[in-house]
Computed example of a mutant assay.
Amino acid sequence: MLKFYALAVLPLIDPTRALSGSRDRAAWLMRPNDSFVDAVAENLLDRLEDCKKSFPTALCLGGSLEAVRRLLGGRGGIEKLIMMDASYDMIKLCKDTEKDVHNENIETSYIVGDEEFLPLKESSVDVVLSCLGLHWTNDLPGSMIQCRLALKPDGIFLGAILGGETLKELRIACTVAQMEREGGISPRISPLAQVRDAGNLLSRAGFALPGVDVDEYIVKYQSALELIEHLRSMGETNALLQRNNMLNRETALATAAIYDSMFAAEDGTIPATFQVIFMTGWREHSSQQKAKRRGSATVSFKDIQKKFGNGN
C-alpha cells in the first residue's frame, strides 16, 4: 500500500492552525532570493521550455509562489497567471512584490484557497505549477486529480515535492538525541513521499505520459540553528497533528551537538540534504502518443536475440 493511500484516509497534517501558521510565518521570514528555493523553481520552470507549445493560462499552487513568479521570465508563453495559497499573508507578500517582477505582459490574479479544494472550473487552465507545496497535502491523490481536471485537454502538470531522503541528517541526529534524553521518539519531521510512489501517484490521478525525475541538493549551514531558521522561512516546520508542540531544551541542544559531531565538514559547516522529486503529467488528448495494443508487436525477443546475440 502506498503512503499516499494512508494520507487520503487519515489526515496527518493539521490544515488549519499549524500549516497555515507555518505559511504565515514563512511570509514574514522569507529570505530574499533563497538560492535553494530559486534552484528548484528554475529547474521546474525549465521544463516549460522543453515543450513545443504555449500555455496561455497558468495556475501556480502554494509552496514557492514568489520564486516562481519572479523567475518565470516569459517561459511557456504564459499570459494569465493565477496564484493560490492557503495563507493570506503569503498571497499578500506575492502581490506586494509584484512591482519588482519584470513580467509586464502577464496578467496576475491572486486567490486564497486550499489545494484540496481547487476553486476552479474544469478544463480552465493550460498548465498547473506546484513548487515545493503539495507534500503538505493530506489527500494528495485527490489534489492531483483536481489538478488534472482543472487542466484543458493536452494541458500539463509540473510539480516539485520534497522526497523521503530530505533532511536525513537532521532525522538521524534528532532520533539519537530523543532516545538518549527522553527514552523514546516522537515525530518531529512530517512524512514525505518516496520516489517509487511518485509515478504511481501520477497514474492514479489519471495523468497521461507521466514522468518522474529526482534531484538532490546539499545546502551548507553554519549551525543546526541556521538550518532550523531556514526551514521556518520556507514554511517547512512540523505540521503533524500528533506532534509535541515544543522540543525539550536538552533534547534540542543534544540534537545540535550530535548533528555537528556526526556530519560537520572540515570547514565547520554542516550539510543538509534536500531530495526534490519532479513530476510531469498531461491531461489526455487525442494527439498524444499512446502505447500499442498488447500483443501487437511484430518482432519477438527471440528474433532480436538471434540477430544481436545474448550479450555475453
Rank of each mutant, 00 (worst) to 15 (best):
R70F: 07
F117G: 01
I185E: 13
R171V: 10
P119Q: 04
R181S: 07
A67G: 03
L71R: 06
S54G: 12
L170D: 10
N105E: 13
K121H: 12
L118F: 12
L151N: 09
S54I: 13
M144I: 08
S109R: 14
A67K: 00
E169I: 04
P153N: 02
D89W: 08
L149Y: 07
D139M: 05
D154E: 14
F157Y: 14
H135C: 01
P56S: 07
K152T: 11
A177I: 05
Q146Y: 01
A160W: 05
G77K: 05
S54C: 12
S124K: 01
D114M: 01
I106N: 05
C147E: 02
F157S: 01
S64M: 13
D96E: 13
R70D: 03
F117P: 00
G62P: 00
P119E: 04
D114G: 04
W136N: 08
D154T: 03
F117N: 13
G63N: 02
K168A: 01
L134T: 00
L65K: 02
F55N: 02
S143A: 15
E66T: 04
I91S: 04
C174V: 07
I111Y: 10
G159C: 12
E116K: 02
I161F: 02
L151I: 05
G133T: 09
I172S: 15
R171S: 09
G183E: 03
M83T: 15
E79Y: 05
F55D: 02
E182A: 09
P141K: 00
I91A: 05
L158V: 03
I91Q: 10
K53C: 07
I82F: 08
G183F: 08
D96C: 06
R69M: 14
E98T: 13
C147P: 00
N138A: 09
T97N: 15
V127Y: 10
T166Q: 06
T97P: 00
V101T: 08
L151Q: 11
R171K: 15
I106S: 06
G133Q: 07
D126W: 05
